[in-house]
Amino acid sequence: MKHAMQVTVTTRTRASTVAGSVALGLIGLGLILPAFASRSLIQDLFFILTMLTLAQLWNLIAGYGGMVSVGQQAFVGIGAYAMFAGVILLGWDPVFAILLGGIAAFLLAIPMAFFAFRLQGAYFAIGTWVIAEVTRLIIAQWKTLGGGTGTSLPREATADIIGVATIANLFDLRDAAARDVLAYWLALALAVGTMAAIYALLRSRNGLALAALRDNDNAARSVGVDAGRLKWLVFLAAAAMTGLVGALIYMQTARISPDAAFSVTSWTAYVIFIVVIGGIGRLEGPILGVLVFWGLQTAFSDYGSWYLLALGLIAIAVMLFARGGFGA
């Protein structure tokens, strides 16, 4: 850059090479982990990775995009149900049916955005929640997929999921454990892919525009930022990814019901908790948040309502006294 006075300007901090190598190392370790990790560790990591991905996606739309959605469970639910429909009605392999989950969530996001984008702030949040509830009620009418009580993936579909036999041979595992490994690898791929995509978006020109929009909507439009286009882009992309995660989660559990798949507590409240305590509007926030959440969950979830009460209090305390989250 040439100009009269010598200055060095820094824009959005690039991840250092150290951080990059550490990340690559972790991904490599994550890939080979099933060779020596216990099944329960793989299951715990599956939970952590899927929650992390959901949290990154919510952080993208709320933390960066300023759209505080309380209806993300709609995409988890519709994604999971689309995957079940693909397996049960079309006879697809569950792994490929996951893609249907992403497509279904994307399609649902179009009318949802159309209505919700007309609302601001708290009304937007409530609007997304209402649309998610409506979706749950409609899906509960779908008798072929179990109606209100739900259904399971048929045994013959789960028995020969693509790749499971190979994994079973490779690590000398029973089929059930091999399915967990497959789900874990897919979760790892989704988590890494999502974070890489978000990082790339934030480093791009659109990342600046998103940050500008978050800080001051009015001023952003006044410098030529196309606010509408950007919000649509981010909302639809996050919805499709959330649908993929939902489908994957229910491929692993192999059992679905409307109340569980469209649970506002599991798929939105916990996710918001993770983002808020980790640090909203930062890529590393959800990573820290999900570890804290998992720790709390493992240690205290036996306490039932008291546990939820404690989660709420922690979230409030963080919002009041450490607004940047633990990561700040």
Binding site: L208, A212, R214
Partner: peptide, 21 residues
């Protein structure tokens, strides 16, 4: 009405990149 979470330079960069396409 600055973009408070961005640096001064980034404020200008946003305006220049989007204002001039």
């Amino acid at each position: 009405q600055p973009f408070e979470g961005l640096t001064v330079f980034e404020n200008l960069l946003t305006a220049a990149a989007f204002g001039q396409g």
